[in-house]
Structures are given as C-alpha cells and as structure tokens.
Design a protein around this nucleic acid. Sequence first.
RNA 1: GGGCGUGUAGCAUAGCCUGGAUAAUGCACCGGCCUCCUAAGCCGGGGACCGCGGGUUCGAAUCCUGCCGCGCCCGCCA
Length: 579
Amino acid sequence: MRQLIEDSQFAFSGAMSEMGLSDSDWGNLLGRATVEDHGDAAMPCHSLASTLKRSPSEIAEEVCSLVSPQLDGIADVSSISGFVNLRATASWLSSKGSSLLSDPRLGVNEEDRMTIAVDYSAPNVAKEMHVGHLRSTVIGDAIVRLLEFKGHRVHRENHVGDWGTPFGMLIEHLLDLGEDEAANELSVGDLDSFYKQARSKFVSNEEFAERSRRRVVLLQGGDEETLRLWRVLVDESMRYFNDVYSMLGVLLTDDDIMGESDYQEILPTVVDRLSEGGLIQNSEGADVVFPGGWVNREGEPLPMIIRKADGGYNYSTSDLACIIDRVERLGCDKFLYVVGTPQKQHFEMVFQVAKQAGFMDERHSAIHVNFGSVLDTDGKVLKSREGEVIKLHDLLSEAVVRANSAIEEKNPELKGSQRESVASMVGIGAVKYADLSTERTKDYVFEWERMLSFEGNTAPYLQYAHARICSIFRKWGGDRSTLSDSTISCNEPEESMLARRLVNFPSVLDETISTYSPHKLCSHLHSVASAFATFYEACPVLGADSEDETSSRLALCELTARELDLGLGLLGIEVPDMM
RNA sequence: GGGCGUGUAGCAUAGCCUGGAUAAUGCACCGGCCUCCUAAGCCGGGGACCGCGGGUUCGAAUCCUGCCGCGCCCGCCA
C-alpha cells in the first residue's frame, strides 16, 4: 500500500523525531503489511530496541499513541507485539478510490520520456513458430505496451532470422520443388516440413549439399536471382508470421522487422571499429575478442567470435551491429532483449564488448529480459527439431475452439459472430495470460488443460468479472461516462476490501514495469477480480437500499471494470463485455 | 572442470532483490450456497519440517556458506 505509506509518512516523521530518532534510524521500517489481516501497512519496532533501550512493544505503543491522532481519517493505528499496524480507513479508501476513478490514467503517472528498443519475437524464416516464440512475443508485446503507457518512445524490433548458411539449402530446395509449389507449401504454413526436407537432403545428398554451399556464396555475394529466390522464402514466411501475429493480437507489423539481413552491410564496420579499439585478436584464423571474465572447459579465456575463419560473421557480430544501430541511428537510451535464459552468457559478453568498444556508455543500458524454457509435461525442454513440434498456429486455433465450445455450453444465448469474437478474446487471452502470469525467468510447463482451464488465476476468470460488471451496466441503462465523477463510499467490508485492492493499481503497475515482470500485474488483477466476486455476492448494486448506495457501488463497478480493462489491455489481452 | 539458474501442501505457482507477525494464491479434495445484477461464481474446511546442514540477526522461505537433486551455458550454430 504505497499510497497509504506516503500519506502517513509525515506523522511518523514527527513522532520519530520526538522520540529522538533520526530518519535514517527508521526510514525503511515502515512498509506494507505482510499479512493482510493485520492491516495495510506496518512498522516493526524491534530493531529500535537497542538504540532506545526499551522493549519493542513499549516503543510500538508509544509510536502508536503519537501517530494515531495525526492519522485521524487516514488510518486506524494499533500496536501489537512490537508492530505498529495501520489500516486504511473507509474514508481514506473512498477518497483514493474516487480520485482514481476521475483520472483517465487511473492514478498511473508518466515517467521522463526515454527512447527504448524492445527486441522480441524473432522467428526464423522457413521455420515454424512454436511455443518458444510465444513467450518472447507475448512478454515482449506486454512490455512494449506498458512502456508506452508510462510515456516512453518505444521501437519494436523483430530480429527475424532471415540470413545465414541454412539459406543455401533452403533456396536449393525451393528450386527443386519449383517456386509455385514451394510458395504454396510455405503459404499454408507447412514451414517445418519444408525445412526438414531441405535439411535431410543436405545431410544425405552430397550433390545437394554442394549446390547449397555454392548458393550461400551467391547469396552473400548479392547475386540478383539468388536474392530474388531468398525474397520469396522471406515473404512467404512473413505472411505466415503475420497470420500468427494477427491471431495473437500483438502490435508487431512489417515495419518492425529488422532482420539479420538488414545488418549485413554494417558487419564489416563492426570489425573495423573493434580493430581500431585494439580489441580484435586472431585465433586460428578467426577474428575474436576476449571480453575477459569467462573461461572455457580448459580454463582458457573464452573468446567471442566476430568473424569466422571462412570470413563469415557470427550472431555476436550482428548483435553488436544492432547496438551500434540502436545507439547511433535510433538514439536509444535503453535496449531490452526479450530472449530466453539460455542466451544469458551470450548477452553478458556482447554487452561487455559493446561497452569496451565504446558502442555504448554509461548513458545507455542494455537489459536481457530473460525468460525460462518451455517444458513439456515430462519436464523436458520442448525442442523444435526432434519429435513433434506444437505449432503456435495450431495451438492458438485450438484455444479458440475450446473457448468457443465452453461458451456454447455456459452461455448458449451468445451466438454467431458475437460468440466467435468472444471465443477469440477468451481463448487467446487464456494462452497469453498463462504465459504472462508466472515469473518469467522460471521454466514454463506447457499444458493444454491448465492453459485453457477457465478456473483460478486465468484470463477467463478476469474476463468473466468484467463481463458481469458490464451486464450490471446494461441492466442499469445509464451512461457509464457519468460515473467518473461519482463518489465511492465504503460502508461494507466487501466494499472496503475491493477498494483497498483497487487503489494499489498505480504502485503495482510501476513495479511491474520497473522489473519487467508482467506477472505482478496479473496477480494484482486477479486479486481485484476475486475481491469483486466477493463484493458482487454480498452487495447488490442495482438493488441497494438507497440511491446513494447504488451510485457508490456503480462507481466501484466502474473503477473495477476500467482497471481490468486497462490492466489486461496493457498485457495485450482483450476484455469482452459479455461472455 | 568452470559458470548461471532452480528446488515452497498431491499438482501448479507467488513471496526472495529491499529479512519482520499465524508462509499467500489457484487447481484438486471435503462441506455448504442459485424464487435475487451471468453459479465460468461465492462461503467454510483439511492439507507445507519453504531440498538438507551450518552461519549472520532480537528475528531467515528471504542474506552468507557447504552439500544434494534438476535444468541450462561454456570457440567458429543462432
């Protein structure tokens, strides 16, 4: 309860200095209560015992008696076993709630504007998008939305894998199939079998392998016909990726694509600039940089390969080029990489080299927003090459189908296009929420049942709360926009509980974005929806005892609905008005 | 071998950065609640030596340290 702590700070300042304590003695002690039953904020006094030479409970009692009159109308103060406990009063909750309601931003302020590049999604051309891309795409997109809401200028960057040695074999395979047939196969989204066919020919057919290698050279040499064929592969794949993006409802467009191929031209510059900085060394014919601090199996310094012995460039080179581009062309202050944890060391090395080479400095921050692997139910990493891949496209379709049949069962009144639209919001929302609601650095078990379950801490539960509120509004028949000026009053405990959860929104949102942890927002929204469900059972809105009560409860409904709408919206999840 | 991460009720998770009270939430389980704004809901209940051992502290799931289990990374892949 950051708001309450801020509003109470002055009283503690006074009380503490009266007791002979400086701000540094107690500064961090006042914090949110760890147990909701005890109150909203608390100050443990145990650590003051030695300086004051008195028992913690005596101190807590004195603090309580000094602070209590100051906080009249703000919080009820009590003390027990060395803790001073604050509980927000109904009037404080009412006034905070009302002020959030009148603010279109629900109390969330804007930060000083920064320019931030967010690197996410990054599918590979001619390869299937799978659940691994889901995480990057969904988390990255939510972070983009959150940053923009906080007032930042955000560059979405989709670092598509559209370059490199595999394209030799892919192009040759395309020629073998014939362009029309190949385009056809790719456009129906059968990317994986296309890739696998090419790969299997590459390993089993020496003539094909040789052609493929020659084709790579042509591609890198800028041969026109080869580039045209390459373009076919890229375009067909992109069409397919866009299909998935549109199903998912993410912000990415073709304008956000910054593929590997886009950086090819400046790769030699990267080498030159590293050389000028005296960082490049030659090792077994390759140009490498030793960032220091890392060793290999033999205990020798671990190099970062910048240019391979055959003259080709590496992933690291391309990442360094990205940094130069983002600093010098886009003028970014910050770059986020929404990429899986396995690449942690890689990014640490890249960032260090970029600093050593002066590509970025103290004014810039590069952050690897890492996330855990997608595991199968057997606890093993779901990999794309072996075994059956779960295609993202199929997964999303199935989510929508399941949502659709659930709606059919629960609410047969919803029909036609309306039901389809709701099914899409619910199905896709469920998948995205499942991904966003767990701490991102942990591994994530992919499980149909859990993902699509409509119970518990899931998107459908939150969406349902929103739909119920809208249903009340429909029955009420008034104009929702007039509710922003209403006064909320908290007379029933269920009203207070709902309000105390709702007013946490601004601080939760700030914490969510400062740690790039969407799950914090998810937990908060779930706590709101849950408090609303309790309120809904206990407090009739339209059938309240008085007009004032109805008006206050409608205002609570409005604030809840807007918070769910805004919160889920910032996560990239849509909220239906009925379901 | 080196490095990074992780271990919390039957299952899945939050809390760990910034130490505080009876460890929180959801599923599953048991028992209640629809003449009343959507029961995809609500209310109540049982269920945890927070991987194990040390240390720091008035106080440790949280900080330090040593083990154990699991996962990932470690020079021409991305």
